[in-house]
Design a protein around this nucleic acid. Sequence first.
DNA 1: ATGTCCCTGTAACAGGGA
Length: 286
Amino acid sequence: MATWNVNSVKQRMPRLLGWLDERQPDVVCLQETKLADDAFTTLLGGELASRGYETALYGEVQWNGVAILSKVGIEDVVTGVAGAPGFPNPEARAVAATCGGIRIHGLYVPNGREPDSDHYQYKLAWLKALTQVVADGPADQIVCGDMNIAPTDADVFDPAAFAGSTHVTPAERQALADLMAAKGLRDVVRERWPDEQVFSYWDYRAGMFHQNLGMRIDLTLATENVASRVKAAWIDRQARKGTGPSDHAPVIVDLDTAPDGDIGPMIPPPSAPRAKKRPTTLPQNR
DNA sequence: ATGTCCCTGTAACAGGGA
């Protein structure tokens, strides 16, 4: 499964379709689609259906917008977060569905803008309501998306550069910690890369991506049942390169098809045939 | 520090959001 803030699904369509064909995820959570549901379906419905995806959409005309794409079923769809405030009206920032037996929450958490602003208070209240929804949910859950919070100082390129800014304040980090504690959620990408700089967002401006001056604010959090099935977890930086990228990279998590141990080891036994060595005469790929 | 990109509305730019 994967989560990706695409920053306009209309602008990102060629990149998104190519990426789906390349990575072939079973479930994808999209954020900042910036498209009403009827326009989303007109634009992408056929392309997604031909690839085997069903969709759960919660969009708006101009801002925000979230979606879940799934090849493994999409049941009990819920849009929005029960009990969450609007700003002042409800915004399209959350969609949940059960896909392949896992309750998936695809989220675009409010930005917060400035500490102690109305929008910042909205962000904290919204996260508190989300925490209750997740706490009331089943044992198999994934909470993912653009959380607009860097969990620790290791998740920003320079903590000093973020002094006085949102995304790193103690209150935001505490709200995230409370959300994780409510259901024992694990940050599966950080667990896989405990000592690496792994960013998911780089500002478009000033060559930030080129210099790897980014933040890790797109998270995949999993309950114990699901986290124990994780076989790989990474941020797909390739998708941030080249022409017409989003400012966010996708986060990809591979799950075993059954709880750990049920289908045997993933590493082939020594007797398994090895892949042929590549001939050394191939031209260098540069 | 605000150099980019994306949206809408209104008209080939302004203003908001990230």
